[in-house]
Design a protein around this nucleic acid. Structure first.
Length: 558
DNA sequence: CCGCGGTTGAATCA
DNA sequence: TGATTCAACCGCGG
């Protein structure tokens, strides 16, 4: 485990190498996540004792270039909703920087090349950027740090995207990350800054100096990036930016009873007019909202009420979950894969592209599942429990498709898609890690019904079913033809028949998971590709055997 | 080896 | 609405 030397360092107390800066010095503030002014230690440090601060954002083609071959509008890695959210966040950041007498300098290209070019061109002495745990940024940052140290540029890369420093927690835990929430809490303890004052505002910023030969642009529009704006109804109602984040935050915490009594598992996944949660996740993902500021705001509310819920279910508990997954992800090589992932059960998932596409495109024939997938496509956001339902359905519950395939779809379409949290939850829901009770399968019929017996959620996101009587809306294939006709929705024509029978598919999944677990136990953590192949063959043979004997039985009865 | 805990299952019964 | 039952998993700590 490589530990980072760039821990979060408190500017006021630690006596850093900030002693005497030449007042003529130039700083480059490199924004990636952390798209905010409040509680932004990298920005604050960049501004300190500098004559010029260059606030930079690099449009990375890897992330932003349109990909017309993708299954939905967007780039190879991000759907249009998240790209739009990012651009809105950049516009808001630019506006805030302008209020401080500066501006956002937008450049385009491979980020390490661009940043290194800027360092040279602007004669930079200090390079500041938020520490990032994702493998892509780790590799990128290594490149830039080695260049900077070679030419003697000071680097400041504080941890401000999470409550704790993942590297520190891993160290405290003896070199590997804690793998349960409770052990994480025990190791983490109280955050060091929990009762100290965060810097939440800046009064002004030194302006950028001469821009030299660098090609700078304003924040681009979707059009500038080569995207066509699609139909109005595919647009998410979630708007990007720090201002919007802070507005939503104050709206959420204004209801003190709601904050104090928040219990995540009790939330209603079918609520969409007024979602059951804060919907602050996209803002945390891009750093439009500081998790530490959020934490302190919740603490402030809790101080002033008699009783409040506690982690893991409380609102504060949700922020700790986020840190939990960041820590495990940072300390686990190949966290986003099954193969080579120390904590991931090796399971011979099917690669059934038809079933995957049916799930992805909201045509499984299970209205509860399909409505959730439509909300994902249109909003880029669904309630946590709704995510559970569709993830369970795709993997261990019904379709037995590899969790990595579902992860890819979520990663692309979610506005709040976050590498550590998304992968962590797919590992969880597929019973590949953290959670192992594969017998507990969410019913695609009854789970939604208990929150929304009338099916309003389904009627909203799947208008083709809007006139289906509530008795049949969760299983319309059971409706008599006369009812289907009256509802103007013929199953198999206007809306698909179910791709599997939930009863038999879920039974089959349980059986396969049991076999896979047994294999993992027997091989004790060293399951080879060959072992998986063998098991896949065995399961296939068993299935054939079973259907043969079933047929025989039927024959003998008949 | 045993017992316990694990954010959020479903079906049944009161 | 809430408690119990069902069937029973893993990882961890003693």
């Amino acid at each position: 485990m490589k530990l980072s030397s760039h821990h979060f360092r408190s500017l006021s107390s630690s006596g850093l190498p900030m002693a005497k800066m030449d007042p003529g010095s130039n700083s480059l503030m490199w924004f990636r996540k952390g798209l905010r002014i409040h509680d932004n230690p990298a920005l604050e440090y960049a501004a300190k004792d500098s004559k010029h601060v260059y606030p930079v954002f690099v449009i990375d083609p890897r992330y932003m270039e349109p990909d017309p071959t993708a299954f939905s509008p967007g780039s190879a890695r991000a759907g249009l909703n998240r790209i739009r959210f990012l651009l809105e966040s950049l516009t808001d950041l630019d506006k805030s920087l302008k209020n401080l007498g500066s501006r956002l300098l937008v450049l385009k290209g491979e980020p390490s090349e661009i940043v290194i070019h800027c360092l040279k061109e602007w004669n930079i002495n200090k390079l500041c950027f938020e520490f990032d745990t994702e493998p892509y940024y780790q590799a990128l940052d290594d490149k830039i740090k080695s260049y900077a140290s070679l030419v003697g540029i000071e680097i400041f890369s504080p941890v401000s995207h999470t409550l704790f420093n993942p590297a520190e927690i891993i160290q405290k835990n003896g070199g590997t990350p804690p793998l349960s929430y409770q052990s994480f809490i025990k190791v983490a303890g109280q955050p060091s800054w929990s009762s100290s004052c965060l810097s939440t505002s800046l009064s002004c910023l030194p302006p950028p100096g001469n821009l030299g030969s660098c090609t700078i642009s304003e924040v681009p529009s979707l059009n500038d990036l080569g995207y066509e704006e699609s139909e109005e109804d595919e647009r998410t109602p979630i708007r990007g930016g720090e201002s919007e984040a802070l507005r939503r935050l104050s709206e959420s915490i204004a209801d003190k009873d709601w904050v104090a009594n928040f219990e995540k598992p009790k939330g209603d996944p079918s609520a969409f007019l007024k979602p059951a949660t804060t919907v602050l996740s996209p803002y945390l993902k891009f750093g439009c909202l500081s998790p530490r500021y959020f934490y302190q705001c919740i603490q402030e509310v809790q101080k002033n009420v008699k009783r409040h819920t506690s982690p893991p279910v409380s609102l504060l508990g949700q922020l700790l979950w986020r840190d939990f997954f960041y820590t495990v992800a940072f300390g686990t090589p190949n966290f986003d894969k099954m193969r080579g992932n120390r904590i991931c059960k090796q399971i011979p998932w099917d690669s059934n592209d038809e079933l995957l596409a049916a799930w992805r495109d909201a045509r499984t024939g299970f209205p509860w599942i399909d409505a959730i997938m439509v909300q994902l496509r249109k909003w880029g956001w669904m309630h946590h429990l709704a995510r559970h339902c569709v993830a369970c359905f795709l993997t261990r519950g019904d379709l037995y498709v590899h969790w990595e395939k579902g992860r890819d779809v979520f990663e692309r379409l979610l506005v709040d898609s976050d590498w550590a949290i998304n992968n962590g939850n797919w590992l969880w829901l597929s019973c590949s890690s953290f959670f192992y009770q594969y017998n507990r399968i969410y019913s695609p019929i009854s789970f939604g019904k208990k929150y929304d017996p009338n099916g309003n959620y389904i009627r909203h996101f799947l208008p083709v079913l809007k006139d289906m009587p509530k008795e049949y809306i969760y299983e319309p294939w059971c409706a008599p033809l006369s009812i289907q006709t009256k509802a103007k929705c013929i199953i198999g024509k206007d809306y698909p028949k179910p791709v599997v029978s939930h009863d038999s598919a879920s039974k089959e999944c349980r059986r396969r998971l049991a076999e896979a677990y047994e294999l993992n136990k027997k091989q004790n953590g060293t399951v080879s590709e060959e072992d998986l192949k063998k098991l896949r063959r065995k399961l296939e043979e068993d299935k054939i055997q079973e259907s043969k004997s079933k047929r025989l039985k039927q024959k003998s009865i008949g």
